[in-house]
Design a protein around this nucleic acid. Structure first.
Lengths: 251, 251
DNA sequence: TGACTATATTTCCTAATAAGAAACGTCATT
DNA sequence: AATGACGTTTCTTATTAGGAAATATAGTCA
């Protein structure tokens, strides 16, 4: 858990607890939390009580169940709004969603992963939603590859040295060579294709957001693969590249 | 700050710091944070470093500026989704937004305040958005009054004893008598009106969500007052009451 | 109903952690 | 080159944290 000498042992424990609650399918109780984060029940209880006092968790029932507190809705919204990129890009991305009817996602890279900052939801009844604030690998996602393609050779090497290319679907690019070739193509054509490389059944086209050689984010159009054909792709690419230009001009 | 004997002094401090960052218009630095939360610079620094390690804050620049971390986008989304109410109500509220073109807000009460869980944004170019996760007083907001009207007399007394009725606009109901009369009306007609009582220029109609005598939330239609007239209100009330019924039936 | 089980909560003492004054770096500005 | 404004490090004392074991409380089943 710890790394070097970090102050605030309680904070690190609180983080473990919040993450565990966050990742639980069903709201956990004290015993379950205590077991999974490997901290004694009394300590976990005391931390949970303080977290609840702070509004970081809320609890229900006699045999208590813990949920993440509503204050995170506020914090999350503020984190999103702290990115100028979101304010600038979303109007264009909403328009792109209207034009394509498909989900349009906006992200940045943080610690080698793509973080989904905001999105415009698909208007189709059958669609996949990415979770806000969720993360994806760069190597498997359209947005990630679009961004990665604008890294320097050294940065790419660095990324690849630290990242295991695990297959997420049967199409995931898992060799350095395949990925590097793909990145060269992307650099050339200006957009990235994720043909069911990141998630079963999902096809994405990703675009980088670059100004003065500086990459500051990316966006993607995301659709169930059965709604995708060559003509559609050509249209989405055209619309996406226009959108990209509009966002970069405003930035 | 503290109340009783709470474990985790560092957590309480971290909360103060996060709240200060959250409430700052512009991203603050160490000195500014230290001064405002009244904790020494070294201590604040150490807490910030741990918060950054946890992903709770991110920082920029040499003279550092701190922002809320993107992990809160994830936590916030999960907090929202942990309410079944959101999953059930939002499809109906999106429909209501489409029918009215105005902002439709969904909330619950937490610690005597209305918390905005989710919303459907107005499709009009001129509109006010409530901030996700933001809170409002019950006494001044349509949603709050709609919910309060379903409290027992004792609960209402309790609320009023603990709450100062401060005027937020010139229309805010600031006397116990006026508010109690209004609550009686609301109980009678089934919806609440906020006629610029909570925020300048904003008119809202609020509806309670009640099942088996149990109030579990509320929603409101919210519009700039210049778009509101008697006929519009009558229509919104009708649509709102239908929506209310649909949501309660599903709950 | 009463015994049993599973979970939450409290107690209490030792070991570990936190706090902040003061000194030190670092950068930008003039 | 000097100034000022901030971030960072050091170090010592006072405070806080941790968890074993005991206790309380709710739910379940014979």
């Amino acid at each position: 858990m710890a790394e070097k000498h970090l102050y605030g042992a309680v904070l690190l424990k609180a983080k473990e607890i919040l993450d565990f609650i966050s990742n639980s399918e069903t709201a956990p109780g004290l015993k379950e939390i205590s077991e999974h984060v490997d901290i004694s029940k009394p300590t976990v209880l005391k931390i949970l009580q303080t977290l609840e006092y702070c509004g970081f968790v809320r609890s229900d029932g006699k045999i208590k169940q813990y949920y993440l507190g509503t204050i995170f809705i506020k914090y999350g919204n503020e984190s999103t709004q702290s990115f100028n990129l979101v304010k600038i890009a979303m109007p264009f991305l909403n328009k792109l969603r209207d034009e394509t009817t498909e989900a349009v996602n906006l992200g940045i890279v943080e610690k080698d992963r793509v973080v989904l900052l905001d999105r415009a939801k698909s208007t189709n009844s059958i669609h996949f939603d990415l979770e806000l604030g969720g993360t994806m690998h760069m190597y498997s996602s359209a947005m990630g590859k679009a961004i990665l393609s604008h890294y320097s050779d050294e940065q790419i090497d660095n990324y690849l040295d630290q990242t295991a290319l695990k297959p997420l679907t049967k199409n995931t690019l898992v060799t350095r060579k395949d990925l590097l070739n793909n990145l060269a193509e992307i650099r050339n054509c200006g957009y990235a294709i994720d043909d069911i490389e990141n998630q079963e059944g999902v096809y994405c086209i990703g675009f980088p957001l670059v100004k003065n050689g500086q990459i500051f984010g990316g966006f993607s159009i995301s659709a169930p693969v059965f709604r995708v054909d060559d003509q559609t792709i050509a249209n989405w690419v055209k619309l996406g590249l226009e959108t990209e230009k509009n966002i970069v001009d405003q930035f």
